[in-house]
Simulated scan of single mutants.
Amino acid sequence: MSSNEIVANESRQERKERTRRAILDAALDQLSHTSFDSISLRQLAKAVGIVPTGFYRHFATLDELGLALVEESFGTLRDLIREVRLDNDLVPDTLIDRSVDVLAEQLIEHTDHYRFISRERHGGSAVLREAIRHEFTLFERELVTDLARMPEISHWGARDLHVLASLFVEVMVSAASELVSPSADQPAVRRGLIDNLRNQARMIVVGAAGWQPLKS
């Protein structure tokens, strides 16, 4: 293959990636005011500057587009939270503070993504509901693994660890939904929600300290 052919191929690939990115961004824009099952392929194509059939050069179906948005929404957050959890020198309060800070920062930077997740978690698309549920399950499983390494609860069984992990996940998910709501654009409201999340997480830790493990 000649150098000109390589450049041409690279240019085509770059254009394809730009168009794919433009489709994702246009979809997020639509999803800021509508649900995924009401998304318009015609409006999507018009916003990107392609014909409607051009969409299928990038995504086989609308569901595939939705799944790409789910993966994109969780990907960065999952990596950042994992980095926080892998710091074994953190005491519980510091771990809670850093985890809450990471979540709050991500929600500010990617508000449209998490508004999409918050809406579609109980939305009309069964495919997206299942994908989102799966992502939360992965969070819970990773958290169970981390909790099992904590000396204070190392004697707990799997059932207890899953109960504790699910509590943390539910609290985080509920708080995230509130933090991406329009009312959270007000600084005082946002600070209150974040402080409340920290306190809820600390209460869970305090309660866990006095928990009597379930019998098998």
Rank of each mutant, 00 (worst) to 15 (best):
I23P: 13
T19K: 15
L103A: 06
D97T: 02
Q30E: 10
D29T: 15
F36W: 01
D87W: 01
G54L: 05
L44S: 10
I96H: 02
D93I: 05
T94V: 09
V48Y: 02
V91F: 10
V48Q: 04
A104Q: 03
E64I: 01
I96G: 02
G54Y: 06
F59L: 02
L95W: 03
K16T: 10
L80V: 10
T61I: 00
G66Y: 01
I50Q: 02
L69H: 05
A60D: 09
R82L: 09
R18C: 10
D79R: 14
L24D: 08
S99G: 06
G66D: 02
G66I: 02
E72V: 09
Y56P: 03
D97S: 02
F55C: 03
D37F: 01
A45S: 04
R20F: 01
V51D: 14
E105T: 12
S99L: 05
I81Y: 11
G54Q: 05
R42S: 07
P52M: 00
Q43R: 06
R85C: 15
E83A: 12
L44H: 14
V70L: 04
R57V: 10
R85T: 13
L69S: 06
L44T: 11
D87M: 00
A47T: 12
S40K: 03
G49T: 01
H33I: 13
S32I: 07
T34W: 03
R57K: 06
L24A: 09
T76I: 12
V48G: 03
L69M: 05
P92R: 02
Y56I: 03
V51H: 11
F74R: 13
G75A: 10
D29R: 11
D87C: 00
D25Q: 12
R78G: 12
D87F: 00
D93C: 04
Y56S: 03
A45E: 02
R18P: 06
S35P: 05
S73G: 14
L95E: 04
V51G: 11
I39N: 04
L65N: 04
T94L: 10
A27G: 15
R20W: 04
F59H: 04
D25L: 15
T19Q: 10
L28H: 08
L62K: 14
D29F: 14
D79Y: 14
I23G: 14
F55M: 02
P52A: 00
R18W: 11
L69Q: 03
D63H: 03
D97Q: 03
T53Y: 09
F36G: 00
A45K: 12
L65S: 03
L44I: 08
V91R: 09
S73T: 06
H33F: 11
H58G: 01
L80H: 14
N88Y: 07
I81E: 07
A45H: 04
K16S: 15
K46C: 15
R42A: 11
E83F: 10
A104D: 09
A104T: 08
A68F: 13
Q106G: 07
H33M: 06
Q43V: 12
P92F: 03
L44N: 15
R85A: 11
R85K: 13
D79L: 12
D89C: 07
N88F: 14
L67T: 09
T61L: 00
R18D: 10
E105M: 09
V51Q: 15
L44D: 09
G49H: 01
R42F: 08
A22F: 06
S35M: 13
G75H: 07
R78N: 13
D89R: 12
S99D: 07
V84M: 07
V51P: 08
R18Y: 11
R82V: 07
R98L: 01
L24S: 11
V51S: 08
L90T: 00
